[in-house]
């Protein structure tokens, strides 16, 4: 790569994005270069201002334009119930449901000792403070169903064990509309294990 080669620089930067290899990065770079210049400028502007325009909500850690996110500001949301998620895309997925009317707490990570992430790196103090101060009655832990997600859920439950708040964990099982025969076996095994009475 020649130094100061703008195409090579763009490709190198793009290839640092998750899921983007060298080849995809080149395809994207040439697509931008050979396409509409207006689009390239808009993209560049959006990228250059995203860090200034977006901030983490002081309450829950969600992204927003102001120090309090739209969900925390909304008086119609039930503040007695908090759903704990690992990252903002998980919150967005739950919001898309439209049925959850409580609030969130975004951890921006999960306990992962192998990657050096301990409880001090997660905003758990802030969660405890919210529980004390906001009259929270229930915590739903919606972290992923893998080792890190489970460990984090168990840690949160243990931390809150002495407080009167009810702590629940999202269920694991067969997706809605899912044919049992097409469900992967780990999920199916877990659904069977976590069965409920009718």
């Amino acid at each position: 790569m020649a130094p100061n080669d703008p195409i090579a620089t763009l490709i190198a930067l793009l290839s640092r994005l998750p899921g983007v290899g060298e080849r995809t990065a080149a395809r994207l770079a040439f697509h931008v270069l050979e396409g509409d210049a207006q689009y390239a400028q808009s993209l560049g502007k959006a990228l250059s201002t995203i860090h200034d325009d977006v901030t983490r909500c002081e309450m829950c850690g969600n992204y927003g334009a102001e120090s309090q996110c739209a969900i925390c500001k909304d008086p119609r949301r039930d503040e007695s119930i908090i759903c704990v998620v690992a990252k903002v895309p998980d919150l967005i997925a739950l919001e898309a449901l439209g049925s959850f009317r409580g609030r969130y707490h975004v951890l921006h990570g999960l306990l992962a000792p192998l990657d050096g992430v301990g409880p001090d790196q997660l905003p758990l103090d802030a969660l405890e403070r919210r529980i004390r101060e906001d009259g929270v009655k229930e915590i739903i832990v919606a972290t992923p169903l893998n080792v890190e997600g489970e460990a984090t859920a168990l840690y949160v439950a243990d931390t809150l064990g002495s407080s009167p708040v009810r702590v629940s964990r999202i269920a694991a099982g067969v997706p809605h509309g899912g044919e049992l025969e097409f469900t992967d076996q780990v999920t199916l095994g877990r659904a069977l294990e976590d069965r409920r009475s009718l």
Partner: peptide, 23 residues
């Protein structure tokens, strides 16, 4: 591996370790 890593830390957080016991 996670639990063992925690056990090697200088100040061991009992609650962190216990989170792995159930798993």
């Amino acid at each position: 591996r996670s639990r063992n890593r925690l056990l090697k830390e200088e100040s061991i957080n009992r609650r962190s370790v216990r989170a792995y016991d159930a798993i």
